[in-house]
Design a protein around this nucleic acid. Structure first.
Length: 361
DNA sequence: AATTCGGGGTC
DNA sequence: GACCCAGAATT
């Protein structure tokens, strides 16, 4: 930021841009309605913000519609079965969010009588609500002047002030600068405006500085460093792990599945029984099959990449009789099995068994 | 402060 | 392939 520019003018400039260019989202109340006094339902803002954690707006859309149709209020969500919520979340990733979503809904009912608190500290004390989400809900749903610092805002502020300190170390400095900009008027629209700016103009690779409402005060624009900011500490390479999953189908069509433990990878999600997943430098782990059967190896393999490792899965498949008694997992009747309840890596295994792909040959 | 958590879109 | 995405919880 140039020293002679007045930061007090920046929020107003951005809000004027937002009034013209606000993105449309299913949970958002447009600026004209907000200025007329209409604020959004805090339940819908909270739900959207949790879904949006490390997830794109485009991906969230369909999930948000299904959740709000099935559970229109936080009280109805709080009364849902765990397995139903985990199933609806399947494919969205970061499944601790879904477990905390239920904990939070139930805490809102028990602690706050079914109404989300407007108080930032009370929000922060709820499961799955961290610094960003507490600020977003208080600002967007309650129009309180709290500062949101997500990936978009980090990028916008790092460029506006030409900050070269790498993330995540730069967070406190960025928060300080972003907080000084946060206005007392229309803080909810302002929070959404900064994020829209980062999502549509101040983009990671090739920012559209020429049409940016903040191009005049932007220090990185002046220095020619915008596209290189923010700097980030390098990430570690992903190792490769491998393992085995067992897909058993009973003669009546039921599938053998297990509900994974609440903690750890894919916690609380439905999946196929299988071995541990070990580093590829180690031999394939010897795992006991969930039941005695004529196991046959499915041609091909499942390849999947998680946040911090690549996975290669071998698939063993068997047909079993209705009197089979597995040592792990439980048979799910054909009519109760929704493949969409499976996390993506487990869905891939199912798809490979159902429709062997050309790459498997 | 570093690690653990998913998955898809994009270049 | 690598990077990014309206981050939070755990260690």
């Amino acid at each position: 930021m140039r020293e002679n520019s007045d930061i007090s003018a920046l929020p107003r400039i951005l809000l004027e841009w937002y009034d013209m260019h606000a993105r449309r989202m299913p949970w958002r109340v447009p600026p004209a309605q907000r200025m007329a006094g209409t604020l959004p339902d805090p339940y819908r803002i909270w739900l959207s913000e949790v879904m949006l954690q490390q997830t794109t707006v485009a991906t969230v859309g369909a999930y948000f519609e299904r959740f709000t149709t099935r559970w229109p209020t936080v009280a109805e969500l709080a009364a849902a079965q765990d397995a139903d919520v985990m199933g609806e979340w399947a494919g969205l990733g970061y499944y601790a969010r879904a477990r905390n979503l239920l904990k939070c809904a139930r805490a809102v009912v028990e602690r706050h009588g079914g109404a989300f608190p407007a108080d930032h500290a009370a929000l922060l004390a709820l499961p799955g609500i961290g610094p960003y989400t507490a600020a977003a809900v208080s600002a967007i749903a309650f129009d309180q002047p709290h500062t949101v610092l997500d990936g978009n805002v980090e990028r916008v502020i790092a460029r506006l002030y030409d900050i070269h300190t790498p993330l995540p170390g730069a967070k406190s400095e960025l928060m300080e600068k972003a907080g000084a900009l946060t206005p007392q008027t229309r803080p909810g629209d302002y929070a959404q405006a900064v994020m829209d700016l980062g999502a549509t103009i101040c983009t990671p690779r090739s920012p559209a500085c020429g049409i940016c409402p903040w191009r005049a005060p932007c220090a990185a624009r002046a220095a020619g460093t915008a596209a290189a900011l923010p700097k980030k500490t390098p990430k570690k390479a992903k190792p490769v792990r491998h393992g085995t999953v067992y897909l058993a189908q009973r003669s009546d069509g039921a599938w053998l599945l297990e509900t994974r433990p609440d903690s750890g990878l894919l916690g609380g999600m439905l999946g196929w029984p299988g071995s541990d997943w070990v580093d590829s430098s180690l031999p394939m782990p010897e795992s006991a099959a969930p039941l005695a059967a004529n196991w046959r190896e499915t041609p091909g393999e499942v390849r999947h990449t998680f946040t911090h490792f690549h996975l290669i899965l071998r698939i063993l498949q068997a047909k079993v009789e209705v009197d089979a008694r597995p040592t792990t997992g439980h048979f799910v009747p054909r009519e109760n099995f929704r493949p969409s309840d499976l996390p993506t890596v487990m869905r891939k295994a199912y798809d490979l068994v159902r429709t062997p792909s050309a790459t498997a040959l």
